[in-house]
């Protein structure tokens, strides 16, 4: 550990220009520790991490602490504005919205993040491979991407529901089965932009000097893709990833309107938003809180992503 610190201290004065030159020689370990140091100094990123962490903990622990269960409803208390008893107000059936935001957050955050990861990993892998090798494989994978872009998602989703819903339920139980199906479906439908973005960067990067250099010193193809090129395509991927979380959370709500998804009585943020929209004038809290929760999550993920990217880009010093 001390050796790493030493190394970095030595390099810091070299400044930005020197960094680019030293990059290929760097050891990965120092890259990460360097990144951590940079990240810590990115105030918004740190704030984002805290908010995100807070939301995750709140949604995991919250439902146990909050006295009103998420599935309890009392029509006598329907459509009440925020109060001490119901800090986020109540829905048209008299659900406590706070309890539902906490509970639904588990699903929404998990779906958002996991589906995004599926999309990004799938997209990155497919495109990294095709972008690097080019030629026939590129052509084939690119046509596949075209195909996925062209398929209208609605019938595909109906087909998937029809083919797999019962099987997944039988195999993993209702909740886990549905969760897996949903993240796979959302991920499986959203990897194409990532793939094309990564490929575009690849086309340009693989002609660059440092790749040639790596070739010359005998680094294998896999090494070049994963160690040298991929980290350089991170920037658009991180944007796609943060936007992907929001998209996944919203898409999840759309899915439940196709009968694909969690049973209709399970609240998720997207679904609560959709359910609340008709009440927007008369009970704005039904829209405001789920909408705010999605916004806050996505915004914090974005800042964390920003911080990560800055931190992982060795050429740049963070702006303080």
């Amino acid at each position: 550990m001390s050796e790493v610190t030493e190394q970095r201290r030595l390099k810091t004065p070299a400044g930005a220009v020197g960094m680019a030159v030293t990059l290929p020689a760097r050891k990965p370990r120092s890259l990460w520790s360097d990144a951590w140091r940079q990240f810590r100094h990115h105030r918004l990123a740190v704030a984002g991490s805290f908010v995100l962490l807070f939301m995750v903990i709140a949604t995991i622990v919250g439902p146990f602490l909050w006295p009103i269960p998420w599935n309890h409803f009392d029509m006598a208390e329907a459509l009440q504005g925020p109060s001490l008893r119901h800090p986020f107000g109540t829905s048209d059936l008299g659900h406590d919205i706070f309890a539902r935001i906490l509970w639904g957050g588990r699903i929404s955050i998990a779906v958002g993040v996991v589906a995004m990861l599926v999309a990004v990993i799938l997209g990155t892998l497919i495109r990294a491979v095709s972008g690097y090798f080019g030629g026939f494989l590129d052509s084939l994978l690119m046509r596949m991407t075209d195909m996925f872009i062209s398929i209208p998602s609605l019938p595909l989703l109906l087909l998937i529901t029809y083919l797999f819903q019962d099987r997944m339920k039988a195999m993993f139980g209702i909740e886990l089965g549905m969760f897996l199906l949903i993240v796979l479906v959302i991920g499986g439908l959203n990897w194409m932009p990532v793939a094309r973005l990564v490929r575009a960067s690849f086309l340009s990067l693989k002609q660059k000097e440092f790749v040639e250099a790596a070739h010359c010193i005998g680094v294998g193809t896999g090494g070049i893709i994963f160690r040298h090129i991929l980290p350089n395509t991170l920037s658009p991927v991180i944007v796609a990833a943060t936007l992907g979380v929001a998209q996944a959370i919203i898409t999840e709500s759309a899915l439940s309107f196709l009968g694909l998804g969690f049973p209709p009585d399970i609240p998720t943020w997207g679904r609560m938003l959709y359910d609340g929209i008709n009440w927007i004038e008369f009970a704005p809290w039904m829209v405001l809180f789920p909408g705010g929760a999605i916004f806050l999550t996505v915004l914090s993920i974005n800042y964390v992503g920003d911080g990560l990217r800055d931190a992982l880009d060795p050429r740049r010093m963070f702006a303080v």
Partner: peptide, 22 residues
């Protein structure tokens, strides 16, 4: 710009559409 972009992105069009109509 970042904040606005994320408001724009986390509010699905069915929400902004109704807001605009109102």
């Amino acid at each position: 710009a970042t904040t606005l972009a994320f408001i724009g992105f986390s509010l699905p069009t069915f929400v902004t559409g109704i807001l605009f109509i109102l």
